[in-house]
Design a protein around this nucleic acid. Structure first.
Lengths: 305, 305
DNA sequence: ATGATACATGACCCCACAGTCATGTTCCGC
DNA sequence: GCGGAACATGACTGTGGGGTCATGTATCAT
């Protein structure tokens, strides 16, 4: 039935793998990352696939080129196959199964990384791959099967995705004892009084803080602008800055550091967020061990949230 | 991610297509159908795949060799990919999509064939392939994705399959006017009186009839043993035999033949059967046009049942 | 306009692999 | 235990295609 199809000139597993790479990277250039040979190869291989199928796989209207819907469709089908094949091979050589987990950098570092570490230690037989993507790309990647499970905000999950019950966590202030000795509830006034390390740009929480300060006629005393929560945590570690971090940061970033106090926020400053583990049903159907991994992750993360 | 996997020596689309063929045919021998070259090729290609995956794909305990569970798993994954690729290619060249329909020979000839004919005439753009398999093989083939939809007995569907509401039909007696001029309800006594063309072997309905006759102290007058319902219908057409056929046979086998009467059976002889269209959810998800085809088939067949 | 970025193309090598043919081996049924 | 069915294997060939290099050509940002 498929003998003829498989035998078409210009159709091969390598070309399909190339298509998958371009699909994940987003463009030929991203996928070839500086290697001119690879760029050349990818360009031609995708052109050859297009000749086979008689349909454009790359949208050539604007550069860098993105995949067309047909390109994504083919890439997804190929990836599904490769994943089954990869699983089978790993199972046969009794090696670890590969699980790809997506989330923002902060969540990876402070929740997923320790959780996966713990799982590997207790169960073994799993290799985790972390993908740090923004939330819209995470959703796409989940739907395309590029990642197996993601830890994302509750409000970001689309109806087509399965997900766990939500965990809610609050932002908390982390203040070095060198700056303030009392561990009482943080008041709005301290936004102007303490030297804050904050995230650069216009994140939701940053805007929220500035609004609260303005309402009180004061100004957020942002003396250090960081580009990630990890940097904020590092700043706090120095003892010279106070910072706002998710409350679960205390487990990961300040474990055993008694020079930093975690202080709850006063009512008006509370800022809660909800997280869920989300995945595509079809991924679990094709690779049933994912179900166990997701459940184990859920339990692990639940201990910290 | 999959570049390395795709590049493994011994891994290729042709080999996977070969594996699919063997999966559908059941064994290497069946798949190569007398061609010694093909036999040689299939044997080696599967061995090469086994080397790649480090797992037995053929169960070599008894001949002819069947696929192992791992072999079926790989074949199924490959077939799913090939089907998406095939669809994409056909869509691109604006050609008909391929739909594989399975059922017993009788149902194909008297229900599916005419139904598909009608669909093709009105809608076009679909190529039907009929597979005549026994019911257990039909279920397997559905689950493996080898066939897209099957018309089977209601009681044969497994929970993993989606299916339509059941249609119920009765067996009816078809009697040439040359043998009996009255079109009244058929009585048990006539089992001994009329010259019956019946299915050979020990089919459920055949056994049922013989039991009923024995209860009445008579014997089923089986003067012609046929190996298919079609042969029974042909026998009835000659005017020299009476036969039991599904009541929908009147549309297909005896259209415009006024020399044959359809006679209902007396209460004790009634023998009803239920049919459903069954398919695998995953197939519809991967190839969404199947949904439309199945619905159209359902409507068509519903007109006759 | 003008680099710079991003992709295409042509020419080349070399090897892996599909396919063929002949023959060997294993296993099943009787 | 024997014949045949079912699969394996070894040897060979031609070619497609992966990979590399050098260079060409669009498109984008400024």
């Amino acid at each position: 039935m498929f003998r003829q199809l498989a035998h078409l000139s210009g159709f091969s597993l390598e070309r399909l793998a190339s298509l998958c790479e371009v699909a994940e990277a987003g463009s030929i250039g991203q996928a070839s990352r500086g290697d001119a040979n690879r760029q050349s190869l990818l360009s031609r291989q995708i052109a050859e696939l297009e000749a086979v199928f008689g349909v454009a796989l790359l949208a050539r209207q604007s550069r860098p080129f993105r995949l067309t819907p047909e390109g994504r469709e083919l890439a997804q089908a190929a990836r599904q196959f490769f994943q089954v094949a990869d699983d089978l091979q790993r199972r046969a050589e009794n090696a670890a199964q590969r699980v790809v987990i997506g989330a923002g950098e902060t969540l990876i570092q402070w929740l997923l990384f320790p959780a996966c570490e713990a799982l590997q230690r207790q169960a073994g037989k799993v290799v985790f791959t972390f993908k740090n993507l923004d939330s819209s790309r995470l959703i796409e990647a989940l739907q395309q099967g590029e990642i197996d499970v993601a830890l994302i905000r509750r409000e970001d999950v689309t109806p087509s995705l399965a997900h766990t019950e939500a965990w809610t966590y609050a932002q908390a202030a982390f203040v070095p004892k060198a700056l303030c000795r009392s561990a009482t509830v943080l008041k709005v006034e301290e936004l102007a009084a303490l030297p804050w390390a904050v995230l650069e740009g216009r994140g939701h929480f940053r805007q929220f803080l500035e609004t609260k300060a303005r309402e009180r006629g004061i100004k957020l005393n942002a003396v250090l602008e960081c580009s990630s929560y990890t940097q904020v945590a590092m700043a706090v570690q120095t003892g010279r800055y106070a910072g706002f971090l998710p409350e679960f940061a205390k487990n990961a970033a300040f474990a055993g550091n008694s020079a930093v106090m975690q202080r709850p926020l006063e009512k008006g400053l509370r800022y809660d967020r909800s997280l869920v583990l989300a995945w595509r049903e079809a991924s679990v159907r094709n690779r049933s061990f994912l179900e166990k991994v997701i459940e184990a992750l859920r339990v692990r993360i639940g201990k910290w949230l």
